[in-house]
């Protein structure tokens, strides 16, 4: 459970590997990896709340959307520099989440999921009617300032952001706080019966999750340079995030990362074969299979594999 040298060695290896990658792969692959990085950020954000505490959020596109819209509007309509607009977007996401989603944390189970889903849909409807001069209405916004030029730079920025979030969340979740949040997911009553105020813990998890979602949403929109409400507040986008976390392994940090890369590349390779929405069925099926045979996800499969390998060697 504690921090070990090999943990740091693994992270070091991953960081070095990811930053060396542009030397060996094509720009096309790098662009796919940029999407994987952002998906990993969103999946980590989802996992910090839902994977740990078991309060399943269907509202993450809502949070991501607040972050993305805030910085897009501030930079494009008011010429505010990104150094200011991105932090403001993050704070806004946390506040908006606090106001509308936090009260829902008192509701158990599927109702929490439903309430969060309703907010995603609500925001989708709202951006189209309220101040379309600011939000761009149904058509969204384009010509939003981009932070980088070229695939390699976009890759470096998204990788740095994703790894910074991953490492800091990993460190945070290694503490007793991470243990307490996971305990809520296993038995919330027992956590209260152990003397811990679960409402405060859930609120903390929620704010952390919202912060990451806002940060990811803001950087993502400054990578894309455009914003389309139909794509953002989309059930497929939501499922991609959730399935990435479940597939990789919840309650871990590396799990949602692996899940995000797996999903992104799978989707990419399926594109020529299954150009339409059918490919979502394919990874829905894969998720289901994995979930049936290894509910703890890819991370657990890899761990088992290593255990068997080392057993095989000693035997």
């Amino acid at each position: 459970m504690g921090l070990r040298w090999f943990h740091f060695a693994l992270w070091g290896g991953l960081i070095a590997g990811m930053f060396l990658l542009p030397q060996v792969v094509s720009n096309g692959t790098l662009r796919t990896m940029i999407f994987a990085n952002y998906l990993a950020i969103f999946a980590i954000s989802w996992d910090v709340l839902s994977g740990r505490t078991g309060y399943v959020s269907f509202g993450h596109p809502f949070l991501i959307g607040i972050g993305a819209y805030t910085t897009a509007i501030l930079t494009k309509r008011f010429d505010i520099p990104v150094e200011i607009s991105i932090p403001v977007a993050v704070v806004f996401t946390m506040i908006a989440g606090l106001l509308v989603l936090l009260p829902a944390l008192r509701i158990r189970g599927s109702y929490f999921a439903l309430v969060t889903l309703a907010f995603m849909e609500l925001l989708y409807q709202l951006v189209q009617v309220i101040r379309p001069d600011l939000t761009g209405g149904t058509r969204g916004m384009s010509g939003i300032q981009t932070l980088t030029r070229g695939a390699a730079n976009g890759y470096y920025l998204s990788t740095a952001l994703m790894l910074a979030i991953a490492v800091s969340m990993w460190l945070l979740m290694k503490t007793r706080l991470g243990t307490a949040l996971s305990a809520i997911g296993m038995n919330e009553e027992s956590v209260r019966g152990s003397g811990l105020s679960t409402t405060r813990l859930k609120a903390f998890a929620f704010l952390t999750s919202a912060m990451i979602a806002g940060l990811g949403g803001a950087f993502y929109v400054h990578y894309l340079g455009s914003l389309a409400p139909r794509a953002l507040f989309d059930i497929n986008f939501l499922f991609t995030i959730i399935v990435a976390a479940l597939l990789g392994g919840t309650s871990t940090i590396i799990g949602p990362m692996i899940g995000a890369f797996f999903m992104t590349f799978l989707l990419e390779y399926l594109r020529p074969v299954l150009p339409g929405a059918e490919r979502y069925f394919v990874y829905g099926a894969i998720a289901l299979l994995l979930y049936m045979y290894q509910p703890k996800g890819i991370v657990e499969l890899v761990k088992r594999g290593f255990k068997n390998l080392s057993k095989g060697r000693t035997a």
């Binding site: 503490t175 007793r176 706080l177 307490a180 305990a183 811990l196």
Partner: peptide, 16 residues
């Protein structure tokens, strides 16, 4: 460990 934790998020994070 869960039973031993203080009901204080800062201490949960910063003390082992």
């Amino acid at each position: 460990r869960v039973g031993l934790m203080p009901d204080d998020i800062r201490r949960m994070i910063f003390s082992p």
